[in-house]
């Protein structure tokens, strides 16, 4: 971990205390696991801090970890133009309550990504103004990227026009 990121992570720890659950590093990528309730504050702070601001939200996406506890993860990538660094946040949620506060108030660009995550995993984002499916048809019932959805889909879930 280089100095700038280390500093950012330290400040995150100092500022948010227990909300920063875990910091991991793999192949120079820094992953910060934060608590669900703190995500909006953390994002706001990351965008606005002085030393290394992260004004660009590159990505928001879900992961189905397929574990009994905290099955879903929502991930965020932020990029800093001034110090050319990238930080990866992760929020873990339970299967029976898959919802994470929306960060669209902080990063408007996250809007479509959250829609996509909702479409693919069924994770809801309270605070999102327009949470619809983004890819699949509106009346589709499943969330295809969940691990329990088969690759070839469920027959009849998506109707075809008649050959006629």
């Amino acid at each position: 971990m280089n100095n700038v990121l280390q500093q950012t992570v330290d400040s995150l720890r100092a500022r948010f205390g227990d909300a920063v659950e875990e910091v991991r590093e793999f192949r120079d990528d820094v992953i910060v696991v934060v608590g669900r309730s703190a995500i909006v504050d953390v994002a706001t702070w990351l965008r606005d801090n002085e030393t290394c601001p992260f004004p660009l939200c590159e990505d928001v996406f879900g992961i189905d970890a397929w574990t009994r506890k905290q099955r879903f993860e929502v991930n965020y990538h932020f990029f800093s133009l001034t110090c050319k660094q990238r930080i990866h946040l992760k929020v873990r949620v339970e299967e029976n309550d898959p919802s994470v506060p929306s960060i669209t108030g902080v990063y408007p660009g996250a809007g479509w990504y959250e829609r996509e995550t909702f479409d693919m995993y069924g994770i809801t984002f309270p605070g999102h103004r327009d949470l619809r499916r983004s890819y699949m048809p509106e009346d589709f019932e499943y969330h295809p990227l969940r691990k329990d959805y088969p690759l070839m889909g469920i027959p009849g879930a998506l109707p075809l026009p008649k050959r006629g």
Binding site: R133, S134, Y135, M136, P137, L145, Y149, L151
Partner: peptide
């Protein structure tokens, strides 16, 4: 509105 060419790449990649 998107999704008219959603080919499920990410699901395919997992397999």
């Amino acid at each position: 509105e998107l999704g008219y060419l959603h080919r499920g790449y990410e699901k395919i990649a997992e397999n």
